[in-house]
Design a protein around this nucleic acid. Structure first.
Length: 595
RNA sequence: GGGGGCGUGGUGUAGCGGUUAACAUGCCUGCCUGUCACGCAGGAGAUCGCGGGUUCGAUUCCCGUCGCUCCCGCCA
């Protein structure tokens, strides 16, 4: 090695030793005669002192060092004089007296982004110069945390007899679900590979093959629009196990989550995590991924107001809609501007508006109060456990809209009112999801999770007659209001599989074409099995308290899906088009040069 | 596909219908032997994203466009 120690290593016990350090010039402080250089590497900071008396050549060299240049410094470790210790760095009691400085790589004097966690440059610049931005302490720490978590998860799963098996990255394209990324085949004109949205089908085959406990840290590709918590490529902790039920999967996943927390920040999280059915989550929190770090629970008020004088309530109730409310603690003083803000949130989620009532001096006040009977007013106050100073917020819409829009108002209020304690982690399982979802655009039922999910046994008789009421053996893991992953117990019975496919309108020929290989596989001995997939990037981000996945991914894409560091996607040569037997659509004008 | 926000020296910000476009930091020069975001003095550095309009005059107001970002849709 070109160095004897790292920049985080030296202590007073090393005093007197001759050492060689390599690193980046984090800051250079020139005092004329005396120059201080803070040298940085992955491991920490070490102060180098350049004294003209100690080395004339080093002193001359030190004068022209640019920040972020790579230096190799030979010198002697020395305990710092009394009163000059720096307690903010681990090596703060020592310094290296430079004997020789070698500028291994001179950095340009003006940097496009700063290596500093305060005052960040705009994200575009930071992504374009990601290799500089990654030098920041917080990103280095995030990458370390991610590594520790991956290692801990692998070790823990190995102890539970899971083995990691890689599955193909070139897979069969299926029209279901997210849009596929697609790779044209050179050998088969007009044919394409797809990049996997998840290893789902392969892990089912692995169960049939007898690998009864499989896992994988698997890259997953989905060509959909980006969000702060969604990247085109993300990593799942994917797992599947045979001869199990929900409880077994929960136990394993709880163990994984505990291991990850412990590895990332030492927080103790232990199972079993609380559980909530999908229906209950929607009723109480207006979300299938409720944030349980605060209260502000919702209640149904439909029965109390269906006979009221208020037209909106009457109409909504008469047409099968629902009226829901929550009591916002101490918000009766909200200004018009503030309640409008709440209404705007609700409107984003398709609500027509919100109705607010103030609770003051034991009275219900507000423009709608006069339309509500004494009984209705008392009933609302009682059901929402509202007290003086509260603001009652009500939505009235179709069942889903009234729940979701009020749920989003609740989420907003939780933050606005500062009800979320930093460092608080609330995990829960959401269970008994509906198996099917009605797609009004295509006028048909769709699988909520995927078509391989088992219906609950008690729902088998109504499978065809009332698909909306059928619940699946389907579960999500939620952490602080973020969906961390989902899984299910799979169908391993070809007859049942056919019934489910019939409901979502997959004909036998369709099924044969798309999933024939999988369906046939179950004809040769398919065990009962189930599994789960955890969004690994999200997990690390939420544990670290970060909102954006880019902070836990070394080379992420921007919101448009562009990898700025290498300017990808990029155009390809005409020859490549030809080899792949494809040509651009008429409407496409190939871009020339880079963006 | 739709909506919101943002775009001013390398970087982060301020500003305003008429300015010499301000401040901080970085950079360059000089001084400085105990700093650690060193300090002090001086200096360079911006066609205010782009195009059009309104106006005597636009960085500022309006329209369009591009880029970034967040959200809705989408994401089995």
């Amino acid at each position: 090695m070109l160095r004897t120690h790292t920049c985080g290593e030296l202590r007073t016990s090393h005093a007197g030793q001759a050492v060689t350090l390599c690193g980046w010039a984090h800051s250079v402080r020139d005092h004329g005669g005396l120059v201080f250089i803070t040298l940085r590497d992955r491991y920490g900071f070490t102060q180098v002192v350049v004294e003209p008396g100690a080395s004339q050549s080093a002193a001359e060299c030190a004068r022209g060092i640019h920040r972020e240049s790579v230096l190799r410094i030979r010198g002697t470790v020395s305990q710092r004089p009394e009163g000059t210790w720096n307690n903010t760095i681990a090596t703060g009691q020592v310094e290296v007296i430079a004997g020789d400085i070698e500028i291994m790589s001179d950095a340009a004097p003006i940097l496009p982004v700063e290596v500093s966690d305060d005052k960040l440059a705009n994200e575009e610049a930071r992504l374009r110069y990601r290799y500089i931005d990654l030098r920041r302490h917080s990103l280095q720490a995030n990458m370390h945390a991610r590594h520790r978590a991956a290692l801990a998860v692998r070790n823990w799963l190995e102890k539970q007899d899971f083995i990691e098996i890689q599955t193909p990255l070139f897979v069969r394209s299926t029209p279901e679900g997210a849009r596929d990324f697609v790779v044209p085949s050179r050998n088969f004109p007009g044919m394409f590979y797809a990049l996997p949205q998840s290893p789902q089908l392969y892990k089912q085959l692995l169960m049939i093959a007898g690998f009864d406990r499989y896992f994988q840290l698997a890259p997953c590709f989905r060509d959909e629009d980006q969000r702060a918590d969604r990247q085109l490529v993300h990593t799942q902790i994917d797992l599947e196990m045979s001869f199990c039920d929900e409880e077994d999967v929960f136990t394993i996943v709880e163990g994984i989550i505990s291991a990850a927390f412990k590895a990332v920040n030492g927080v103790e999280v232990k199972g079993p995590f609380p559980r909530l059915s999908y229906d209950e989550a929607m009723e109480r929190f207006g979300s299938d991924k409720p944030d349980l770090r605060f209260g502000l629970e919702m209640r149904d008020l439909t029965d109390l107001v269906s006979e009221s004088e208020f037209g909106i309530f009457r109409e909504v109730c008469a047409s099968g809609g629902r009226v829901r409310g929550l009591a916002a603690t101490g918000c009766a003083h909200f200004s018009r501007k503030e309640t409008d803000e709440l209404a705007d949130i609700a409107k984003i989620y398709k609500a027509k508006g919100i109705i607010t009532l103030k609770i003051e001096e034991g009275q219900v006040r507000g423009s709608v109060a006069k339309y509500l009977s004494e009984d209705a007013q008392r009933g609302i106050v009682k059901r929402l456990q509202a007290v003086d100073g509260d603001l009652v917020i009500i939505t009235a819409d179709d069942p889903e809209v009234s729940a979701v829009s009020l749920g989003q108002v609740r989420r907003f209020l939780g933050r606005k009112l500062g009800l979320i304690r930093e460092g608080d982690y609330k995990l829960l399982w959401v269970t008994e999801f509906p198996l099917f979802e009605w797609n009004p655009d295509e006028n048909r039922w769709e699988a909520k999770h995927h078509i391989f999910t088992q219906p609950r046994e008690q729902d088998l008789p109504i499978l065809e007659s009332d698909p909306a009421a059928v619940k699946g053996r389907l579960y999500d893991l939620v952490l602080n209001g973020v969906e961390m992953g989902s899984g299910s117990i799979r169908i391993n019975n070809p007859e049942l599989q056919k019934r489910v496919m019939n409901i979502v309108g997959t004909t036998t020929e369709d099924a044969e074409r798309k999933f024939g290989f999988l369906l046939h596989a179950y004809e040769y001995g398919g065990p009962v099995h189930g599994g789960f997939a955890i969004g690994f990037d999200r997990l690390i981000a939420v544990i670290l308290g970060l909102e954006n996945l880019r902070d836990v991914i070394a080379f992420p894409q921007n919101a448009a899906g562009v990898s700025l560091v290498d300017d990808c996607p990029n155009e390809i040569d005409l020859k490549q088009w030809q080899e792949l037997h494809i040509r651009p659509a008429e409407s496409v004008v190939p871009r020339s040069g880079s963006r």
